[in-house]
Write a protein that binds this DNA or RNA. Structure first.
Lengths: 125, 125, 125, 125
DNA sequence: GTGGTCTAGACCACC
DNA sequence: GTGGTCTAGACCACG
């Protein structure tokens, strides 16, 4: 349940966090009711600004992945597993779509795209 | 050889331009030695600031796609076709790879990924 | 880590900056991970426009000398020392070569060139 | 006595021309009294703007390398050979000085510079 | 606070 | 006419 952050890779840090929490839930590394590290602790551990943690946690609450436990901290919502799994699926599907659209828009034929896809997939042993 | 810019796209205007010029070269819409529209003309045509065009053209020079003819304008470098074609291929291939890797890492099976791919591709009319 | 700029030098200000940063890295005046002055601070200190600093910093990023820490500033890349040292060496070596080649092509003998070199070097106190 | 121009190498075309004429005189490819190609002819031959030829010829006149022959064209001045030879010498000396100064200013030791020089000179077979 | 992008307008050398 | 550089000032996302 430890997160790895790269502050110089273009993707906003808070987004990296949001994504990692969601994936941890989908992978059942974080389970319903489990408590998350406090903003302060996590900020210190990752050596990043507490505001950034807060922003990520806030977004995870609005996306109904986490919920506050009155005055004690944030926990994984019991109904979030399914949400995270499907959200991840959908997210990936959207991104795949975007890449394919760009391929076609760039002048590649369907055959070229398919061959590229097969090569890429088989390369991922 | 006409470019379409979406200024409210997230992607910086100058990058959209760079990308479109490269793709135009890869598609032989722009051929070796061909002159590009002048900074001022293109700026007026696209209704954006000349500096933005300049920035794109500057980047295309550092990427060896264009070269200056002193006092006359910018032309496509004779050796840039190959560079642009492979650059495009590689750019798209890298992005496709990233998405696929994420799919597998997210727990999808190869079959699921392939089905997702086929659905997405056939959905793009 | 202080830079000296000559705005009436023919050489663009942003290039003077790029060069001085690279040389500072090569001389270990700037070390890996060290933060650079902020665009605004440096602009004020050198009494030049922030955009000009930005341009220099941007080029240093594309040349892989600096990397951004999102929202915090720019730091020297850990692997840039070697790059800067060899780049400096090569830059100077190329220019020296060009001059020597021109000397020989201009009809000077090796002895004349060597004598010219020695005279010039000893004249630089 | 034919000139080679590269319109995309950074050096202004008219300067390339001036330099080549001077060197041709220094090398006795152009001798005293010899007539130069007309602006029109040379412009056509090199496929560059006549204004550029004019600018170069004008500069060569102010530098006392060429002189007009009333209504007939421009010829090499009888006293320009010595001038061109020494001018070339001096030009090269100045440039050598500049490079060496930069080497020292860049933190190289005199020994390093000397070794670089010897390597460069011996490499020019 | 940080850098990144864009606009506006000026000036330059070169052709 | 061309691109290149610089200034000035605005707005943005990010931490």
């Amino acid at each position: 349940m430890y997160f790895s952050i790269d502050p110089s890779n273009g993707v906003p840090i808070y987004e990296q966090l949001v994504r990692q929490v969601k994936f941890a839930v989908a992978d059942k590394v974080l389970v319903a009711g489990q408590m998350l590290p406090s903003v302060r602790n996590l900020a210190q551990e990752l050596a990043i600004n507490p505001n950034t943690i807060s922003k990520a946690y806030a977004q995870l609450q609005t996306e109904q992945v986490l919920e506050p436990l009155r005055g004690r901290g944030l926990v994984v919502r019991p109904d979030s597993l399914h949400r995270c799994v499907t959200a991840r699926q959908e997210l990936l599907s959207v991104r795949l779509n975007a890449v394919l659209e760009e391929c076609l828009h760039a002048g590649l034929s369907r055959e070229e795209v398919t061959s590229m896809f097969e090569k890429a997939l088989s390369a991922l042993a």
